[in-house]
Design a binder for these strands. Structure first.
Length: 446
RNA sequence: UCCACAGUAGCUCAAUGGCAGAGCAAUCGGCUGUUAACCGAUGGGUUGUAGGUUCGAGUCCUACCUGUGGAGCCA
C-alpha cells in the first residue's frame, strides 16, 4: 500500500507511488485516456489513466466516477508542465488503483456559470469550488496572521461576551434574544468590555462574531461578521494609526508570500497588493470633505455627482469613501470626524469639540471602511455628560462608568472588520464570499 | 423602509400578444494528452403565486411572494 499524502505535499514525491484521499473535481474521458481532477482540500491534481495500461476493473471504476464522488486513489507522481490547472502546478498522477467510497450523482454545481441565488442556496457545496477554496484559505491566513502579530506585540487575547445586557453602540440594529424571560442582545462590538479588559491587562484584543440587525442590502454588509478589536492603554490616535498601518501592511505581505496560487485563482491584481506598505496617508475629515467637494465639482455624470454631494458634518456614504480611496494607492486614514456622527465614548479634540479623536481606515479600490477607531473619553465628568446627552441609561452602564472612576487612563482602540479585509485582499466584489456562511438580509440558509 | 431590475427545463438564458426554444448538465454513441474539450442522438416544462384584459397571455394590467443591485445605516 502506497503512503497516503495530501496534494500540497506532492512535489516531494515525484516518481513515487502515493495514495490520495479526496473527491473527484472534474473528469474528461477519451477513447484512450481518463483525465480525472482530484481535490483533497489541500490542492488539486489531475490523475491520468492511459487505458491500454489499465486493467478492465480499473477502467470500469474510472468510468463510473462522477463529479464529487469520494475516492481513495493511488498512482505515481509525475512532473508535467502542462498540468497548469493543478495546485500546485506542474504535477499529475498516473493512476494505478482507485477505491470508491461513494458515487455522487447529479451534483448541482457544474463547471459552467451559475447565478448568485443558486450558489448561495448551495453554499455548503459551493465551498468545494476552487475559487471558494482560495478565499477560505486566505481568510484563515489573515486571521492567523492578525492574531500572531498582536500576540507578538504584547497584546493579550481576552474574549468578550456575545450575549450582552445592553447595546454597545447603536441602540437600534440589535438582535434581541429571550434570556430566560429577560431581553438580551447579541453583541454589536466587544469594545466596552475590551475597555474593562484593557484596564486589567494593558494591551488587549478580542476577536469574534458580532451582530447587526441592520436592514442593509449592499455588498458591504453582513448581519453577522467577525471583528478584531484591539484596545490599548496610554495610546494616542497617532500611535493607533501607526499600529494599524503596520499590522495591515504585515498581513498583506504575508498573504502575498504564502498565497500566490490562491491569488492567481482569484485573478487578483498583485500590483495593487504589493503597493500596500506603511506608512499610509493620513488626512483629516475637513480635508476629506474638501477633496470630495472638489471631486463633486469636477464630476460630469449627473447620477454619480448626486452621490458625491456632501456638506461638512455629514458622515460618508459608499461613494464618498470610494472617491477618497481612489486618490491613494494604499489605504488612507481619515481622522477627526464630527462628534455628532460618532459614538458617545469618543474623545473630543481639544479646543474643537465639534470633532473627535476618531479615525477610519479606508481600503483602496472601493472596499470601504476596514477599521474604525478612536481615543476614548477617560475623564469621568465628561463621560457622565456624554452618557446623559446620548440618552443612555447610566444604571445599565454603571459597570462601564466604573472604569472612569477607578484608575482611568487615556486609551484608544479600533475594530477591524474581517470580511471587508478578506474581500479587499482577495479582490471580491461582495462580502458574502468572504465568510463561509454569510448572513445577509433575508438569507440565513444554509 | 425606499428606488431600480429580474423570476421560463437541474443550471445559464432566448421566444413582435399567435406551435415554449438553445447552450450546458444528465443518459447513450463517436472522436481526441484532455483541462469551461469536441461531434451526434435521447429524455427533460402547471413560464414565481392569485386575479384581470383579450378570440388568444411567457409577453399587457393589478396585487402579492422571492431574488438581485443600490440608498439609508455601518465594519
Amino acid at each position: 500500500m502506497a503512503a497516503a499524502i495530501t496534494i500540497n505535499q506532492i512535489a516531494q514525491h515525484v516518481g513515487e507511488e502515493i495514495t490520495l484521499r479526496g473527491w473527484v473535481y472534474d473528469k474528461t474521458e477519451t477513447k484512450k485516456v481518463f483525465f480525472v481532477m482530484f481535490r483533497d482540500g489541500t490542492g488539486l491534481v489531475q490523475g491520468v489513466g492511459f487505458k491500454p495500461d489499465l486493467s478492465e476493473a480499473l477502467i470500469a471504476q474510472l468510468t463510473a466516477l462522477t463529479q464529487e464522488s469520494a475516492v481513495i486513489v493511488t498512482g505515481v507522481v509525475q512532473e508535467n508542465p502542462k498540468a497548469e490547472k493543478s495546485v500546485p502546478q506542474g504535477y499529475e498522477l498516473a493512476i494505478t488503483a482507485v477505491e470508491v467510497l461513494q458515487i455522487a450523482s447529479d451534483y448541482p454545481i457544474t463547471p459552467k456559470e451559475h447565478g448568485t441565488d443558486f450558489l448561495m442556496d448551495n453554499r455548503h457545496l459551493w465551498l468545494r469550488s476552487k475559487r471558494q477554496w482560495a478565499i477560505m484559505r486566505i481568510r484563515a491566513t489573515i486571521v492567523h496572521t492578525l492574531r500572531n502579530w498582536l500576540d507578538d506585540q504584547g497584546f493579550l487575547l481576552v474574549d468578550t461576551p456575545i450575549i450582552t445586557p445592553t447595546a454597545g453602540e447603536n441602540t437600534t440594529n440589535l438582535f434581541e434574544i429571550d434570556y430566560f424571560g429577560e431581553p438580551a442582545y447579541l453583541a454589536q462590538t466587544g469594545q466596552l468590555y475590551n475597555e474593562a479588559n484593557m484596564m486589567a491587562f494593558g494591551k488587549v484584543y478580542c476577536f469574534g462574531p458580532t451582530f447587526r440587525a441592520e436592514k442593509s442590502k449592499t455588498r458591504r454588509h453582513l448581519m453577522e461578521f467577525w471583528m478584531l478589536e484591539p484596545e490599548i492603554a496610554h495610546c494616542s490616535l497617532e500611535e493607533l494609526m501607526t499600529l494599524e498601518e503596520q499590522m495591515i501592511a504585515h498581513v498583506v505581505s504575508v498573504v502575498l508570500e504564502k498565497h500566490q496560487a490562491e491569488l492567481a485563482i482569484l485573478e487578483r491584481d498583485l500590483s495593487r497588493l504589493e503597493a500596500i506598505k506603511a506608512p499610509f496617508a493620513r488626512i483629516s475629515y475637513d480635508e476629506a470633505v474638501e477633496r470630495i467637494q472638489a471631486a463633486y465639482a469636477a464630476e460630469t455624470d449627473p447620477e454619480r455627482k448626486e452621490f458625491l454631494k456632501i456638506e461638512w458634518g455629514e458622515d460618508f456614504g459608499g461613494a464618498h469613501e470610494t472617491a477618497i480611496a481612489e486618490m491613494f494607492d494604499r489605504p488612507v486614514f481619515v481622522y477627526h470626524y464630527p462628534t455628532a456622527v460618532k459614538a458617545f465614548y469618543m474623545q473630543p479634540v481639544e479646543g474643537r469639540p465639534e470633532v473627535c479623536r476618531s479615525v477610519d481606515l479606508l481600503a483602496p479600490e472601493g472596499y470601504g471602511e476596514v477599521t474604525g477607531g478612536s481615543e476614548r473619553i477617560f475623564d469621568e465628568a465628561l463621560m457622565d455628560v456624554r452618557v446623559k446627552n446620548f440618552g443612555i441609561d447610566p444604571e445599565a452602564y454603571s459597570w462601564y462608568l466604573d472604569l472612569r472612576r477607578f484608575g482611568s487612563v487615556p486609551h484608544a482602540g479600533f475594530g477591524l472588520g474581517l470580511e471587508r479585509t478578506v474581500a479587499w485582499i482577495c479582490g471580491l466584489d461582495h462580502l458574502r464570499e468572504a465568510i463561509p456562511y454569510a448572513r445577509i438580509l433575508n438569507r440565513k440558509y444554509p
